[in-house]
């Protein structure tokens, strides 16, 4: 873990667990979780796209719920558990969502797909057999390459797999 040796009266230690590993960070409490993940902890799979929670490329799970980390202050993650795209296949075995992404050849440029996969994993955790309407309502991530049809097909594939679990 890299830490910045800065001194500021605003800084207080933040403790959080990321992909099963505990971290204590000395950063400003208002620093967005995204930048703590990318620059302080060094997990760059989570991307920066807009900084205003509009595109979803920064989506991670906070205590299992999807959040857009570009606007979430790190203080809101204090004492909590964060899962990023790197944590979705902890033992190198791809999750069902990731496997479906390969099977359907979903990504093009791939930049939005970390966030897309995390959003879909959360959607399926909450709604294991989503209808098209559930997908439309629950997934608002932007993909400029236009992979939406494959995203939808891959989601249904995971939902229709034998045990229905997305992990």
């Amino acid at each position: 873990m890299r830490m910045f040796g800065v001194s500021s009266e605003h800084i207080m230690p933040i403790t959080l667990t990321v992909n099963g590993k505990a971290h204590t960070l000395d950063v400003e409490p208002e620093m967005p979780l995204l930048w703590a993940l990318r620059e302080t902890i060094g997990l760059t799979g989570t991307k920066f796209g807009c900084g205003i929670a509009a595109c979803g490329v920064c989506t991670v799970h906070l205590d299992g719920r999807p959040v857009r980390s570009c606007v979430l202050p790190i203080s809101a993650a204090d004492g909590k558990t964060v899962t990023t795209i790197e944590g979705l296949a902890p033992d190198g075995v791809l999750s069902k969502v990731q496997q479906a992404w390969i099977a359907h050849q979903v990504p093009q440029c791939g930049y939005c797909q970390s966030g897309m996969i995390m959003a879909v994993a959360a959607l399926l955790a909450a709604t294991p057999k989503p209808t098209d309407a559930d997908i439309d309502a629950g997934l608002t991530n932007i993909c400029r390459c236009g992979t939406f049809a494959r995203v939808r097909a891959a989601i249904h594939d995971v939902a229709n797999s034998t045990d229905g679990s997305a992990s």
Partner: peptide, 27 residues
């Protein structure tokens, strides 16, 4: 054919310019 660049794009390991880093780097 399966695209050769895809495995790295589903597990966060693909490296884009924004992900490049080196010791002592500033922003």
């Amino acid at each position: 054919a399966q695209r050769l660049d895809l495995p790295s794009k589903v597990d966060g390991s693909a490296v884009y310019a924004i992900d490049f880093t080196m010791p002592g780097m500033l922003y």
